[in-house]
Amino acid sequence: MADDLIDPTVLRGKNPPLSIRAVLRRSALVRQTAWHHHAQGQLIGALTGAIRIETEAGAWVVPAIHAVWVPPLHDHALQSNGPFQGWSVYIPPALCAGLPTSPQVIVASDVLRAAITRAATWPDGPQSDAQHRLAQVIMDEIAAAQKVSFHLPAPRDARLQRIARQITIDLADNRTMVQWADWAGIAPRTLSRHFAAETGFTFQAWRQRARLLAALEMLASGLAVTTVALDLGYDNISAFIAAFKKTFGATPGRHHDIQAL
C-alpha cells in the first residue's frame, strides 16, 4: 500500500472498522501530563497559546495554528503555557504507515482544523461511510501538511544533559561555552565536539534555539517583545528581533499577529 494512499476498505472493514477519534479539550487550568504513551498515533494542537511536548529526543514547541504528531508508543509529556484550549486526534497504528515515524510539528491547515472540529462531535460507536471519508481527509491533510522545525534536540551525554537542563532553567544566563565546560567538568573542545555531534547544533546555536523556542511560548502568553528579549538575556531588542526573524521567517510581532488570526 502506497504511503500516501489508504485503502478505503481498511477504514470500512468489518471486524470492526478502523477509524480516528477526535477530542476537543478546554480548561481554565494549565494542562500538564506526565510521561506516557498511547497505542495509537496522536496529533495534538492548541487553539490558543502554545504547548510544549517533551520526548527523549528533545522538546517541541507548538504555537496555535500548529500541531505536533506523536507516533504510536512514543513516550512523551505535555504542558500548556496557560489555560488549555486545544484538541487531540488518535489514529490506530494500522493507519499510521504514511505518517512520520518521529515527532514532528506541522502547520494545521484550515481544512484540517475544520475536519477535526467536526470529527470531535461524533458519538462513540460505529461510524458511517461519510465519517470514514472525513477521517480520510484528516489523514490526507496530516500527510500533506507543511513541516516546521520547532524542535530543540536533547544531547545524550550526561554532562551535556546537565548543561542543557541548567541553560533551559535560566535562559538569560550568558556564561560562555568555556565557563559551562568548567562548570560541568568537561574540556571545552570535547563539549563543542559532542554538542554538535549529538544535537546537530553548535553550543551557541543550540542555546540560541532554546531561547527562541521559549520566546514562542512567552509571546503566545501575551508578553511584550521587549520583555521577552530582556528576559531571555539579549543585550538589545534589535538582536532578538533579527535572530527571531532569521529562524522563523517573521518578526516577533508579525508572528504573534499570525497566531491570532
Rank of each mutant, 00 (worst) to 15 (best):
W122M: 06
I51S: 04
L78N: 00
Q166E: 13
W87E: 12
D75H: 01
R162Y: 10
D157N: 06
Q161I: 11
L95D: 15
G98H: 14
S88N: 14
V105S: 15
N174G: 07
G125C: 07
A145S: 07
P153H: 05
P126Q: 09
H76F: 05
M139V: 03
E56F: 01
P63L: 00
D173I: 02
T176G: 06
G58A: 08
Q131E: 11
D170R: 08
A114F: 03
A158D: 05
M177W: 08
A114M: 07
G185I: 13
D170Q: 11
I65V: 02
A143E: 02
P71C: 01
F150I: 00
V89A: 13
V137R: 01
V137Q: 04
S128E: 08
P155E: 09
T168R: 15
N81W: 07
G185E: 15
D75A: 02
A67V: 04
L78P: 00
S149P: 02
A59R: 11
A135Q: 09
N81Y: 09
Y90Q: 14
E141F: 01
V70K: 00
I65E: 00
W60M: 06
S149F: 05
P155C: 05
Q104L: 15
E54L: 03
G98A: 11
P71V: 00
D157E: 03
W87Y: 14
P63A: 02
G58R: 05
H132R: 11
Q127E: 07
V68G: 08
R133I: 04
P103A: 15
L73F: 07
I167C: 08
A108N: 11
A119H: 06
R165G: 12
E54Y: 02
L99T: 13
H74V: 04
R159Y: 07
A77L: 01
L78R: 03
L152D: 09
R159F: 08
A187Y: 14
A184Q: 15
W69V: 00
R52Y: 05
P155V: 07
A77K: 10
P123G: 06
A130N: 13
A97H: 14
I91S: 13
D129P: 00
H151R: 12
G58D: 02
I169H: 12
T101R: 15
P83S: 06
A130P: 04
D173S: 04
G185W: 14
A97S: 15
R133C: 06
V61Y: 03
Q179L: 10
R175F: 05
N174A: 09
E54T: 06
A154E: 09
L171S: 09
A115V: 03
T176C: 10
A143R: 14
W87N: 11
I65P: 00
C96D: 13
L78Q: 03
A120W: 10
A57S: 04
L171I: 08
V148I: 10
A57E: 06
F150M: 03
P153K: 05
R162L: 07
H66N: 07
P71G: 01
C96E: 14
H74G: 02
I65S: 00
I116W: 04
L99M: 15
